[in-house]
């Protein structure tokens, strides 16, 4: 009897071993059947909880590189959006520059050009366009894209031109508040490329955040009513005689690609008149 018991305990442990090995190998080699079974994978509650705890701790160590990846991704998407909007603006034109072709027939003409170099990080920034004298571009022409004004052409070669953008102080751009028709002049303070200052606004004007700023049309560079930006903050200047408005620029200077050069056909006449008047 004792021998039988001993035999069974011996054979029993071997049977248990064989059984467990069998179960393990069955699970391993027929794992197709168990792919539906969440219990045997790291998707079950316990392992899910342990792994999410691990992620919540180790995630901190990757925040920096993760941020970089996201930032690059953002920039890429941003550029893509800009590209697509610029393509789209041939059909829909939020800044209204295509509209003015109809408004002022013959007076303004649009020349498409591509940005081939663009700086935003310096104190005085410049943009280079592909397209120059041969394309009909000349100094003192305005440059805009579908978002709003970008700057003024300063130098032109046969095939290229240099643009002084808003982000190049002390150049000033004549602009006005769309709501009250009050004029001021736009200048960049060299700080944040998203914002510029609208100065010389009379203090009695009521301004609120979100008011639209457009070009005034007082110069021969831009026609009236092209988008400049929206008021972000007001009353930021120290000067009591004038208001200074912080304007969020409509144009994203980081991502310029296709722009329109605005050609004023009656410039010669206008300039002649100005010299005659002695301005």
């Amino acid at each position: 009897m004792q021998n039988i018991v001993r035999f069974f305990t011996k054979i029993g442990s071997f049977l248990l071993f064989a059984l467990l090995e069998g179960v393990a190998l069955y699970l391993l080699f027929s794992s197709n059947n168990f792919q539906q079974s969440v219990f045997f994978t790291s998707a079950n509650n316990l392992s899910g909880a342990v792994y999410s705890l691990e992620e919540s701790i180790s995630g901190f160590f990757y925040l920096k590189s993760e941020n970089e990846v996201l930032m690059n991704e953002n920039n890429r998407l941003y550029k893509e959006i800009q590209l697509l909007t610029n393509q789209l603006d041939q059909y829909t034109d939020t800044a209204g520059i295509a509209l003015m072709r109809d408004k002022l027939p013959g007076e303004f003409e649009l020349i498409s050009a591509k940005v081939i170099h663009n700086s935003v990080t310096h104190q005085r920034n410049f943009i280079t366009l592909k397209g120059g004298r041969l394309a009909g571009i000349a100094p003192e022409m305005g440059v805009a894209n579908s978002d709003g004004i970008i700057g003024v052409v300063s130098h032109v070669s046969d095939n290229y031109s240099v643009v002084i953008p808003v982000l190049c102080p002390p150049n000033r751009f004549s602009c006005k508040l769309k709501k009250s028709n009050t004029t001021g002049s736009l200048v960049w303070n060299g700080d944040d490329r998203r914002f510029a200052m609208m100065e010389e606004v009379p203090p009695y004007v009521s301004v609120s955040k979100g008011d639209t700023v457009v070009t005034s049309g007082y110069s021969a560079i831009f026609p009236e009513g092209i988008m400049v930006g929206v008021v972000e903050e007001y009353n930021v200047g120290e000067d009591a005689n004038f208001l200074t408005l912080k304007v969020r620029l409509a144009v994203h200077f980081d991502a310029l690609s296709n722009v329109r050069v605005i050609r004023f056909n009656k410039r010669k006449e206008y300039n002649q008149l100005k010299t005659e008047a002695g301005i």
């Binding site: 442990s13 248990l16 467990l20 090995e21 179960v23 391993l28 994978t41 790291s42």
Partner: peptide, 29 residues
């Protein structure tokens, strides 16, 4: 420790590892 307990413990520990590494049966075997 009896061989039964030892086997069962071994199998369970392997199975826990398998659950975490998504390899049902591999560590357990």
């Amino acid at each position: 420790l009896s061989s039964y307990a030892s086997l069962l413990i071994g199998f369970s520990v392997g199975m826990i590892m398998d659950i975490f590494t998504n390899t049902p049966g591999m560590h357990a075997a």
